[in-house]
Each structure stands twice: as structure tokens, then as C-alpha cells.
């Protein structure tokens, strides 16, 4: 295996890991703070992809400005969708058994696939152009766009770390995650914290969709695979941990690339094998803390 080949495959892997990290960190954040496993989280990823398609291909055109507008729009739109989902749909269920929350997000997931079909139609939505050109590595080629995605995802990871470690609201979220009753007793507005957490998590997923779709295309049902892979990522990394999502996404992406190169038969299966092993050896994930179930 040549150095060039190893390098391009590393970039492919990092691109894939970047997308997985953005989806999974949002899912992990929401679970960590609210103990809700949002099955519609993958559908938010899909919505992000469609919003970005609409902005870049239908409104502005596949120019750098169009793509950037797509990223920003899907981030904002999904933040709003996330906030409304928490406020209107999920909040009435906090006092109910947790399987009802799970079931509601499942309902949202299957309904959103059809909503997308009603608005955009059932066909693949394809970005016919990538901005920013290409770079050559030996006789391989890498779109600069992939590097932009990797860089953006890295910056967002750092921002998230700073947010939770340094800002007051980030610290409050962590406190509320640890124990909402105490947080409320200390005078924090847990309602506001929950709605912001849900909005932030959903926005991350929407952003992931916006970044991924120019290369991976947008289609109804793309959330179903994404959500189950994100489960694997956050279980491996540890639920509720941002660093865990980074490591989980890297493991998932590396496992996939290695299998593609070496043993394609195991490409689909390996991630679940890793997930099972991690759950057996260290159930809280590589970087997770003990999760206290709330009832």
C-alpha cells in the first residue's frame, strides 16, 4: 500500500467520521442531558440535507455562497425544529413512562420521511457540483470540500468542548444533566436548559446533513441508517460525552474503511461487533460516566 493511497483513505475516513461525529454528538448531548433517545434525530439529519439542497441548488446555485447559506440555514432551521419538538411534543411526556417518549420519537421518524417526500418528492436530490475544487495526491484526487467538512467538524468539536467546560450555561446544562432536581432547586431554569439542549443537539444533526449531502446526496430514509450508526457511535464512545462521540465516530469510520479495503464481507457487521464488545467490557462506553436512569 503506497503512502498516497494510505493518505487518501485516511481523508475518506476522517470525512466519514466528521459526519458521524456531528450527528452522534447531538444525539449524545440530548441523551446526556434529558435521558431521551431521540429516534427522529436521524430524520433531523435528513432535514438538514434537504434544506441545504434547497438553498444551494434551488435558490442560490451551487456556488460557495450557496453552500455556506445552506449550512447556516439548516443549522438555524433545525435548531427551531428541535426547540419546537421538545416544547410541544416531548414536554407533555416527561411525567410518563420513558418508552412513550421513545415511541413518540419513532412516530416522528416515520412521519418525517413522508413529509420530505411530500415536499421534495421521492427521488434522490443530487448536488451536481462541489465548491472549492480538487487537490491531487499522487494519481489520486481529493475534493477540497471534504477537507472543509473535516475542518468544520473539528472546530465544532472544540467549540462544544469550550461551551461545556467554560460557559455558565454549558456548566448549568451539565449540572442539570447530573441531577435536574438539584439544578432546579439551585434556581436554574431547567425548562430553558432542556429546550436549548434539544435545539443545540438537533442543530448539530441538521448541520451534519447539510455538510454530508453535497457528497452523499439527500434522499428520504437517509435518517434510518444514520440513527442506528449514531447509536453505535455513542454507545462505543460513551453516552453524554463529547469526547466519546469523537472517539466513537473515529472507531466506526476506521472500522468501515479497513473492512472496505481488507474484508468487505464484514463492512456492515463489524461496527455492531465493536458495539457489543464495548458494552460488555465497559458498558458506559470508553469515555462515558455511569448513567443514572430517571423514572
Amino acid at each position: 500500500m503506497s503512502i498516497d493511497y494510505a493518505l487518501v483513505q485516511a481523508i475518506n475516513t476522517l470525512f466519514y467520521a466528521s459526519i458521524l461525529f456531528l450527528i452522534a454528538s447531538g444525539l449524545s448531548l440530548i441523551y446526556g442531558i434529558m435521558r431521551i433517545l431521540n429516534l427522529a434525530h436521524g430524520s433531523f439529519y435528513m432535514l438538514g440535507a434537504y434544506i441545504s439542497y434547497t438553498a444551494a441548488m434551488l435558490w442560490i446555485g451551487p456556488t460557495p455562497a450557496g453552500f455556506v447559506a445552506g449550512f447556516v440555514l439548516s443549522l438555524a432551521f433545525l435548531a427551531a425544529v428541535g426547540a419546537l419538538t421538545e416544547r410541544i411534543l416531548i414536554r407533555p411526556l416527561y411525567s410518563k413512562p420513558s418508552e412513550l417518549q421513545l415511541l413518540l420519537t419513532f412516530a416522528l421518524m416515520i412521519a418525517l420521511d413522508d413529509v420530505v417526500k411530500m415536499i421534495w418528492g421521492p427521488e434522490y436530490k443530487s448536488f451536481t457540483k462541489l465548491p472549492w475544487g480538487y487537490m491531487s495526491i499522487g494519481h489520486y484526487s481529493v475534493p477540497i470540500y471534504m477537507l472543509v467538512v473535516i475542518a468544520s467538524s473539528t472546530i465544532i468539536g472544540l467549540l462544544l468542548w469550550w461551551f461545556f467546560a467554560k460557559t455558565t450555561i454549558g456548566k448549568q446544562m451539565r449540572a442539570a444533566a447530573y441531577n435536574p432536581e438539584i439544578a432546579a432547586a439551585l434556581g436554574m431554569n431547567t425548562d430553558l436548559l432542556f429546550v436549548s439542549a434539544f435545539a443545540l443537539g438537533s442543530a448539530l444533526s441538521g448541520f451534519a446533513g447539510a455538510m454530508a449531502s453535497p457528497i452523499l446526496t439527500a434522499y428520504p430514509g437517509m435518517g434510518t441508517d444514520a440513527i442506528v450508526l449514531s447509536f453505535a457511535v455513542i454507545v462505543i464512545g460513551g453516552m453524554g460525552s463529547i469526547l466519546g462521540s469523537v472517539v466513537g465516530a473515529l472507531i466506526a469510520a476506521i472500522a468501515r474503511t479497513v473492512m472496505v479495503i481488507v474484508y468487505p464481507l464484514l463492512e456492515v457487521a463489524l461496527i455492531y461487533i465493536v458495539m457489543i464488545i464495548v458494552l460488555l467490557v465497559k458498558p458506559t462506553g470508553l469515555f462515558g460516566k455511569e448513567i443514572v436512569e430517571r423514572r
Binding site: 500500500m1 503506497s2 493511497y5 487518501v8 483513505q9 475518506n12 475516513t13 470525512f15 466519514y16 427521488e123 434522490y124 443530487s126 494519481h139 489520486y140 471534504m146 457528497i215 452523499l216 446526496t217 434522499y219 468501515r256 474503511t257 472496505v260 479495503i261
Partner: peptide
Amino acid sequence: DYTSYIDKMISMKPDIVFSSLWGGDAAT
């Protein structure tokens, strides 16, 4: 995501690529 497959294929140095992918898969 076909990127890893494509680079794998490039590393095999083919003259002709035959592909029966279809529909959205073929376009992606």
C-alpha cells in the same frame, strides 16, 4: 459513501471499470 471504494479501485489500476450500480446509487 463510495469514496473508500473508489480509491481502492484506483489503487488496483484498472483500464476499464464495469459497474451495474443503478438509480440514485449510480448517480452518487
